[in-house]
Amino acid sequence: MPTENPPIDRDKSHLTAVDEEAVRLADVLEDHPGTSGVTDADTRGDIVFTAAGGTWVLDFQSGLDGEVFQNPSSAPAPADGPAADVLRDVVVPALLAHPAYRAATADGDALTVHLATGRHYALALTPAA
C-alpha cells in the first residue's frame, strides 16, 4: 500500500505559488484516467506527463505584465500548434473536475486556466523532446 505525502505546511514551505500550482496540477493530471501518469514536475513549474500515446510538457507562461498569475482583466495571447487534441480531450476535462479550477480553455497549444480565486494563468503544451 503506497504511503501518502503529508499536506504542505504553507508556513514552512519553500515552494513558490507557481511551484504549489504545478504540484496541484500534476496531482490532478496524475489522477485523471486519460493520462498514464506524470513523470516530472520540476521547480520551474514544467509538468511532464504521458497521454494519447505521447509525452507532453506543460510550461507556465508569463503574461503581459511579466507575472505568471494574471489579473482577471488581462488575457494571454493563444498560440497555435499540434497539441490541441491532448488539451481538449485530456487536460481540460481533468481540470474541470477539480474544485480549484473555475474554467480551462484550450486554443491550439495554449491553455488558459481560471482559478476559483478569479486569477488565471497560461500554459503552453509541447511534445517532450
Rank of each mutant, 00 (worst) to 15 (best):
T3H: 11
N5H: 02
P7Y: 01
P7C: 00
I8V: 14
D9G: 07
D9V: 05
K12Y: 13
S13E: 15
S13F: 12
S13K: 12
H14F: 03
L15I: 01
L15M: 06
L15Q: 08
T16E: 04
D19K: 13
D19R: 12
L25F: 15
A26V: 08
D27L: 15
D27G: 12
V28I: 15
L29M: 15
L29N: 14
E30F: 09
H32K: 08
P33M: 11
V38K: 05
G45E: 08
D46C: 11
D46N: 13
D46V: 04
I47C: 06
I47V: 10
I47L: 07
A51W: 05
A51Y: 05
A51D: 02
A52W: 00
G53P: 00
G53E: 01
T55V: 12
W56Y: 11
L58R: 09
F60L: 14
Q61E: 14
L64S: 01
L64I: 05
G66H: 13
E67C: 08
N71E: 11
S73R: 08
S74M: 02
A77G: 02
A77Y: 11
P78W: 10
D85N: 07
D85Y: 01
V86P: 04
L87G: 06
R88C: 09
R88D: 14
D89R: 08
A94H: 04
L96A: 13
A97G: 02
H98L: 07
P99Y: 14
Y101W: 12
R102A: 12
T105E: 07
D107K: 12
D107T: 14
L111T: 14
T112H: 03
Y121K: 01
Y121T: 02
A124N: 15
T126W: 02
A128W: 05
A129V: 01
